[in-house]
């Protein structure tokens, strides 16, 4: 598009950038100014502290499991509800969105009700010496739960808007189901998938409430990055807490940079 900018366009851009400056950039600056207020040396010392490093590792591993699972399931679910009409369809869409509306603490507690020692499956698990709660598995499970809606929520509006003509055409040309999905559907929804992945990733990395209930917060074992930040904050180590928080921010920014690179490759 080569048309010159209209007045409306300029106003809208200015408005958006100003808003973003106050709502997003300033908080970011605040985090880094707190993290760096005792100098770069202290900043890096805070980050390479073994328990903080382990927390970063645990959070990254959790995201590496949760994001792909929820993207695949989200795609399956979006396919189901946008390509077929069946009884209970609306209900299914609403159910998948439920976890996002639960208070994170409650999300953690319902998992306790299920897998905890006094929970629904507790006696069975104990009889078999299986421990789910207070292990990394519990962290993965609640993270799956709290981010379950994100990918589906991105995909459903897009796929219902796109309609089925392209896919039907592919099938009539003799493609099998997987070929149709791979060559026709996937390219059309890849952006929404990336957005879904970014949201899911951000939330998994940042989740505190639900994880705090089920993790047991064992340092160096089941302490995720947000829990570690909380611990540092509780140590009067505000600088350390913000340093750890800044790594989360950096991870998020790195994800976004990756997304931008993909995007430019697609346009280029």
């Amino acid at each position: 598009m080569t048309r010159s900018r209209s007045a409306g366009e300029i106003i809208l851009i200015t408005l958006a950038v100003t808003l973003a400056l106050f709502v997003l950039v300033v908080p970011l600056v605040l985090i880094f100014s707190f993290a760096l207020r005792e100098g770069l040396g202290v900043y890096f010392a805070n980050i390479i502290e073994p328990n903080t490093l382990h927390a970063i590792w645990l959070s990254v591993m959790t995201a590496l499991i949760v994001v792909p699972v929820n993207i695949v399931v989200g795609a399956a679910l979006a396919w189901l509800v946008t390509r077929f009409r069946f009884r209970g369809r609306q209900l299914l869409i609403s159910i998948i969105e439920l976890p996002a509306s639960m208070s994170p603490i409650v999300a953690g507690v319902v998992y306790l009700f299920l897998y905890g020692g006094q929970g629904l499956l507790g006696p069975f698990l104990q009889a078999n010496s299986l421990q789910v709660m207070f292990t990394p598995l519990a962290i993965v499970l609640v993270s799956l739960f709290v981010t379950a809606p994100f990918a589906a929520r991105e995909l459903i509006p897009l796929m219902s808007q796109q309609g089925t003509e392209d896919e039907e055409a592919a099938l009539s040309l003799g493609a099998n189901g997987w070929q149709m999905f791979w060559y026709v559907t996937l390219p059309n929804i890849s952006w929404a998938m990336v957005y879904g992945a970014v949201l899911t990733n951000a939330r998994v990395m940042g989740e505190f409430g639900a994880v705090s209930v089920v993790s047991g917060a064992i340092r160096g074992q089941t302490n995720t990055l947000p829990l570690q930040i909380n611990l540092l904050f509780n140590d009067f180590n505000v600088t350390g807490a913000f340093a750890a928080a800044s790594t989360l921010t950096l991870i998020a920014v790195a994800t976004l940079v990756l997304k931008s690179i993909l995007e430019s490759r697609r346009h280029g």
């Binding site: 905890g116 507790g122 104990q126 047991g216 340092r219 160096g220």
Partner: peptide, 19 residues
């Protein structure tokens, strides 16, 4: 190994299986 949280949270966790 150390675990730190509010003590009600800790007691709840132990009742539910935190070893």
């Amino acid at each position: 190994n150390q675990s730190h949280a509010g003590t009600s949270t800790q007691a709840r966790a132990i009742l539910e299986g935190l070893p």
